[in-house]
C-alpha cells in the first residue's frame, strides 16, 4: 500500500492518474492498479465533494445528535449503530468514548425536519435512553477544506 498515493487522494480525489503518477514516481498503470486494489480491499470506501451548501437558498441543516443507548448482550453497540445507519438522513455514525455512546450527524432540509427525525425515528428506538440535538450554525472547515473566507495570497506576484 502506497501511503504517498493515499495521502494525495485524501487531499484531492480528483487528481488525475497521470498527475498522481508524476507526483509519486509511479507509472500510470501502477497508480491505476494501486487505486483499484485499495478500492477492492475496502481501504478506499468512496469519493465525495465538499460543498458549501450555505451558498444555496435550498440549503441543508445539519445537527450532531448525542445518543445514549443500552448496549445489547453479545451485540454491544453494533445492532443499534446498524439500525441508525439505515436512514438516508444520517450522514455519520460514530461510537464515542465519554459522556454518550453514539454520535450521529443528520442532514435534512429544515430544522423542523431534523427535529422530527430525531423525535420520531431516533428517540423511539427501544434501546435509546436519551438524545441531545446540537444544530450546526455555521461550517468553517470540513474535511480539511476551508468553507469561509477567501485565502488570498498576500505574497505579491514576484519576488526574487
Amino acid at each position: 500500500m502506497n501511503m504517498k498515493l493515499l495521502n494525495l487522494l485524501d487531499e484531492n480525489a480528483r487528481t488525475s492518474v497521470e498527475d498522481l503518477a508524476v507526483m509519486t514516481g509511479l507509472t500510470t498503470a501502477e497508480v491505476a492498479q494501486e487505486i483499484a486494489k485499495m478500492e477492492h480491499d475496502g481501504l478506499v470506501r468512496g469519493y465525495k465533494t465538499v460543498i458549501d451548501w450555505e451558498r444555496l437558498d435550498s440549503a441543508y441543516v445539519s445537527a450532531l445528535i448525542e445518543l445514549k443507548v443500552t448496549p445489547q448482550p453479545d451485540l454491544g453497540f453494533e445492532e443499534i449503530a446498524e439500525r441508525v445507519m439505515q436512514y438516508s438522513e444520517v450522514e455519520t455514525v460514530y461510537l464515542m468514548s465519554g459522556g454518550y455512546d453514539l454520535c450521529v450527524i443528520v442532514k435534512d432540509r429544515t430544522f423542523q425536519d431534523v427535529a422530527m427525525f430525531v423525535a420520531k425515528e431516533l428517540a423511539t428506538m427501544p434501546t435509546v435512553l436519551s438524545t441531545a440535538t446540537h444544530f450546526v450554525l455555521r461550517r468553517y472547515k470540513e474535511l480539511d477544506v476551508k468553507l469561509c473566507g477567501e485565502c488570498a495570497d498576500d505574497r505579491g506576484k514576484i519576488s526574487l
Binding site: D153, R155, G156, K157, I158, S159, L160
Partner: peptide, 11 residues
C-alpha cells in the same frame, strides 16, 4: 487575473 509562479517564498 495573473497566475504567478514568480514568488521566492513558501506558501
Amino acid at each position: 487575473d495573473v497566475i504567478s509562479l514568480g514568488v521566492g517564498e513558501p506558501d
